[in-house]
């Protein structure tokens, strides 16, 4: 194999050359993973908060299951979603297999438990400090959720980024339900898998470098916005 410097050089060249195919792949990766992350956040944050402050029978069991699901193997999720969406599966009529929508569904399944379980911990810790004060303001447990989510926004941002990391880096599920179809469902990770299987290890590693650069850029962006949210007067109503 060639040296790491050459890999970095190739990665840089890939980004700077503005290769149309590469940019299409990067944009599809972002589109799929950010959409999945948005959906997973909309489900996972309220779910995590409800598990943190709610008191209902079976709560401990649900928490255990959600926590365990953080470690769902992507391949298994991919297979399950594939069987659901396959032409012979229960949702075959929607014709979603081998589309970005199928990849989004698989990533939602992978990311939601991470967002829910980690945010539950964040909210639970916060709730320990705020429960009496919010109770004093007449807020019943479930009504405290919007306040708690806003109070925990800094930590929750990290939770959401962890979910993004899982989504953008995952290959096992999207390659099964997306099929790695060129110009349709090929994303960064499946492209890397393909180049690896072609033995183009330098190119694969260069693509990996691009992926990492992308992840760093997103994290930095969120960091900047997060700092602004902390310092300024929040617009939250």
């Amino acid at each position: 194999m060639t040296g790491f410097g050459e890999t970095l050089g190739q990665a840089l060249w890939l980004i700077l050359s503005g290769d149309a195919d590469l940019w299409a792949i990067i944009l599809l990766s972002l589109r799929v993973s950010l959409t999945a992350l948005a959906i997973a956040t909309l489900i996972g944050l309220p779910l995590g908060a409800a598990l943190a402050v709610g008191r209902f029978p079976g709560r401990r069991t649900v928490i255990t299951i959600v926590s365990a699901m953080m470690g769902l193997p992507p391949v298994v999720v991919g297979l399950a979603v594939y069987l659901m969406l396959s032409a012979s599966g229960p949702f075959g009529i929607f014709d979603l297999l081998y589309t970005p929508a199928a990849m989004i569904i698989a990533q939602v399944v992978l990311v939601t438990p991470i967002v829910a379980a980690l945010s539950r911990q964040v909210i639970a810790d916060l709730h320990t400090d705020l429960a009496e004060q919010l109770d004093s303001f007449g807020l019943r447990p479930l009504a405290r959720i919007p306040t708690l989510l806003w109070e925990g926004r800094t930590s929750l941002m990290t939770v959401v980024l962890a979910g993004f990391g899982r989504a953008i880096a995952e290959v096992g599920a999207v390659i099964i339900v997306g099929g790695n179809i060129n110009h349709v469902t090929r994303v960064m990770t499946t492209a890397i898998a393909l180049e690896t299987s072609k033995g183009n290890l330098t190119l694969a590693l260069a693509l990996g470098t691009v992926l990492i650069t992308m992840a760093i850029a997103i994290n930095a962006l969120v960091g900047v916005l997060g700092a602004r949210a902390r310092s300024g007067v929040p617009a939250h109503a």
């Binding site: 400090d129 004060q133 004093s136 303001f137 807020l139 806003w150 109070e151 007067v233 929040p234």
Partner: peptide, 25 residues
């Protein structure tokens, strides 16, 4: 009724936003 605790439990927002929280309630 309202209550103030031994250690102030403030929301991570501006001073005005904290008071506004009470006003909204």
């Amino acid at each position: 009724q309202a209550m103030v605790f031994q250690r102030p439990v403030l929301l991570r927002r501006s001073v005005a936003a904290n008071v506004r929280f009470g006003l909204r309630r």
